[in-house]
């Protein structure tokens, strides 16, 4: 899998590059700002771009804008956005598109190598990765007549992992249950929340996200 990295901190960029290389991914280019990133994505057409939100020149949301542009111009390239903080609004903005291949994670997550590499791979393969903190905040929101209250604790766990963008298989591994059991939970959750069932992982994330946002 081929990766382009963008972060204005050389130190961190090198660290992440080393980590991904050791995990067997190929970092084909690194960029220090959004313009540089777009040029390198255009040149290399990687499977995934890992992008910091704040970059020169304004140090505000260059990464988010660049992500949107990459999704539009090179839909086959996935974008994983890293940030020092996560906001639900940005998450919804990023994942709103129909197509998969998008992720939004706290920068701290790089410390958990395996999960981070898995998220990069998932986005590179057209899946989604949403930070557990965003999911927790969306789930923790208080609602009147909350259908989430009808979920069993196990179903809630499954919903959380599903919202993060994981496949049934990954969820099963994470919870140490069989794939069949996860499938049953998913069907039950969609039933209780009144969502139309779907097999596509990204569409599933989108449906859950839309539901949680409403």
């Amino acid at each position: 899998m081929r990766v382009v990295l963008a972060d204005d901190s050389v130190l961190l960029r090198e660290g992440i590059a080393r980590l991904l290389e050791e995990a067997g991914l190929e970092v084909v280019a690194q960029a220090g700002d959004a313009g540089d990133l777009l040029r390198k994505v255009n040149a290399h057409r990687p499977d995934v771009a890992v992008v910091d939100v704040r970059m020169p020149p304004t140090h505000t949301d260059e990464g988010l804008k660049a992500a949107a542009e990459i999704r539009e111009r090179w839909p086959e390239t996935g974008v994983l956005v890293l940030s020092q903080f996560v906001e639900e609004a940005y998450a919804v903005e990023l994942l709103a598109g129909d197509a998969g291949g998008i992720g939004y994670l706290l920068k701290d997550r790089v410390a958990d190598l395996e999960r981070f590499v898995e998220a990069v791979r998932r986005v590179g393969q057209g899946g989604s990765a949403l930070d557990p903190e965003v999911v927790a905040r969306l789930l923790g929101r208080h609602r009147r007549d909350d259908p989430l209250a009808e979920l069993t604790p196990r179903e809630r766990d499954v919903l959380e992992l599903m919202a993060e963008g994981r496949s049934n298989h990954a969820i099963a591994e994470g919870l140490v249950v069989t794939d069949r059991a996860v499938e049953k939970h998913v069907t039950s959750i969609f039933g209780k929340l009144g969502l139309p069932p779907t097999q596509d992982d990204h569409r599933r994330v989108l449906a859950v996200l839309t539901y949680l946002q409403a």
Partner: peptide
């Protein structure tokens, strides 16, 4: 500091 802590986490993880 935040950036350094991320790098720190990365190095500890590796």
């Amino acid at each position: 500091a935040q950036q350094r802590l991320v790098a720190l986490g990365l190095q500890v993880g590796m």
